[in-house]
Each structure stands twice: as C-alpha cells, then as structure tokens.
Amino acid sequence: MATNTHDAGHGAADAAHGAADAAHGSSGMPQLDFSTYGNQIFWLLVTLVVIYMILSRVALPRIAAILNERQGTITNDLAAAEDLKAKAQEAENAYNKALADARAEAQRIAIETRAEIQAGVDEAIAKADVEISAKAAESEAAIAEIRASALDSVKIVASDTASALIAALGGKDDAKTIAAAVAERTEG
C-alpha cells in the first residue's frame, strides 16, 4: 500500500522515496523492515555487552568507592568533631574547676590574712593595755608619792607654823608635843 499511495498522492520526490523503499525491500515503516532486524540485534547485543563491561568493571566499582570514601570521610569528620567537642567540654570543665579552686584559695587567703591581722591587732591592743596599765600604775605611784611628800610638807609647814605660833605666844616649844599634835590633826 505504501508505494501505491506515494505514487498516487504526491510528486516526484515521493516516487523516488517509494522506489528507495522498494529497493530496501521494506514497507513504509522502517521499524517493520525485518531484513534489518539481524543487524540491529547484533549491534545492540555488542553495545549492551560493552556497556555492561564498562559499568561492572570500571565505572560502578569506582563510583561506589568514591561514595564510600565520602561517607567514610563524613563519618570521620563527624567523629573528629564529636571528639573535639568532648575535648572542649573537658577544657571548659577544667577551667571551671580551676576557677573554683582559685576562688576557694582566695577565700582561704583572705580569711587567713584577716585572722593574722586580727591577731596582730589583738596583740597590739594587749600590749597597749599592758603599757597603759603600767603607765597608770606609775602615775598612781607618782601621785601617791607626790601626795605623801605634800603631806610631809604640810606636817613640816604645820609644825613650823605651830612652833612659830608658840614662840610668838611666848611658850616654850616642845617639838615632841607639836609633832604629836600635828600628826593628830593631819591624820584626823
């Protein structure tokens, strides 16, 4: 039918085409030209075998290796990152511990120093107290002495005055009596 319609329907080109078809011994549909099937099947099998060889011998193992390697690298990197993270955590812990230690030490030193200073102050205070009491006692003694000497002076002045009075009154001064009288008066 193909040759038939071509000749009937269209111009010279179609006739030539129909003739070419006739030369090939085919119908209008090259897919149904069974004389070329052997050729196509042969070359297809060759092609498939070659592609299969290329893929199974070279390409697929290589790509699988690349993908595995990448997966391995990623896993390694993740592990390394995990490691580093753990290390960082450790370092942070150590830092915190050191910080706490330092703080405690500082606390301890402060307390110690305070105690030391307190002790010094206490000692100084005690010393000062002792000194003060010593000075007070000394002063007291001095005062007592002064008071005593003053009493003596009063006695001397009183006896002198008494003897002078007696002399002025024309009496005979009796030292013993005067001394007794003065003593009686100043004591009393």
Partner: peptide, 8 residues
C-alpha cells in the same frame, strides 16, 4: 494506526 497507514 501506524500499521494501518504504512504496513497494510
């Protein structure tokens, strides 16, 4: 359709 057009 193709068979009818080209191959019958």
């Amino acid at each position: 359709a193709l068979l009818l057009m080209f191959a019958v």
